[in-house]
């Protein structure tokens, strides 16, 4: 091999190393972008959490409580609130507070009652919430009870009445 050919071959080798390093960098960037664009691990937990929250709301409405010496449940108390809010709202606040105080696995919560698209009560004890609702009949049409399961607790800051 003459000297010129030897230099040319060494030059080709040098460029091939550079090309190889570039390919590695491009591969690395491509895979990194792919990794960032979508989660490689997908969780199938959220739907189960929703089921739990829906059961909590249903059971909240079914939970028996004592109202003026009579055993009612929260659903019946809410119906009474739609008839006479001033008379029953304090019992509702107390019993709802008591109910959620026992559920220490719930970080924060809110309960909102809407009658015919108009909010009549809203108790706020949490923020960053997901909402779940139930509808039931009332004397004026329909009552919507919305339970918010929250990520953050706001503590006992007093009931919010509308």
């Amino acid at each position: 091999m003459n000297k010129k050919a030897f230099i040319a071959e060494a030059l080709v080798d040098f460029y091939s190393y550079i090309a190889f390093i570039l390919i590695i960098i491009v591969f690395f960037l491509l895979f990194s972008i792919q990794k960032c664009s979508g989660p490689s691990e997908r969780e199938i937990i959220s739907s189960f959490e929703e089921n739990n929250a829906e059961i909590i709301l249903l059971n909240y409405l079914r939970t028996p409580i004592l109202v003026e010496g009579k055993e009612l449940n929260f659903a019946e108390l809410i119906t009474l609130i739609s008839i006479d809010k001033e008379k029953y709202k304090n019992i509702f606040y107390q019993e709802t507070e008591k109910f959620f105080r026992n559920l220490d696995f719930i970080k924060g919560w809110q309960i909102k009652i809407i009658e015919e698209k108009k909010p009549i009560l809203h108790v706020i004890r949490g923020s960053d919430c997901k909402e779940y609702e139930e509808t039931m009949p009332s004397s004026k049409g329909t009552l919507k009870v919305i339970f918010y399961e929250c990520e953050k607790s706001l503590g006992a800051i007093g009931p919010t009445s509308l």
Partner: peptide
């Protein structure tokens, strides 16, 4: 030798980014 290094690098890069472990134990439990 250079070709072997190239092939091994590609195999290593592909293997390190492809998720092959699928843990469905939580899903099974729920």
């Amino acid at each position: 030798i250079f070709l072997v290094v190239v092939v091994l690098s590609i195999v290593f890069i592909v293997k390190s980014f492809v998720v092959t472990d699928i843990d469905i134990r939580s899903a099974e439990a729920y």
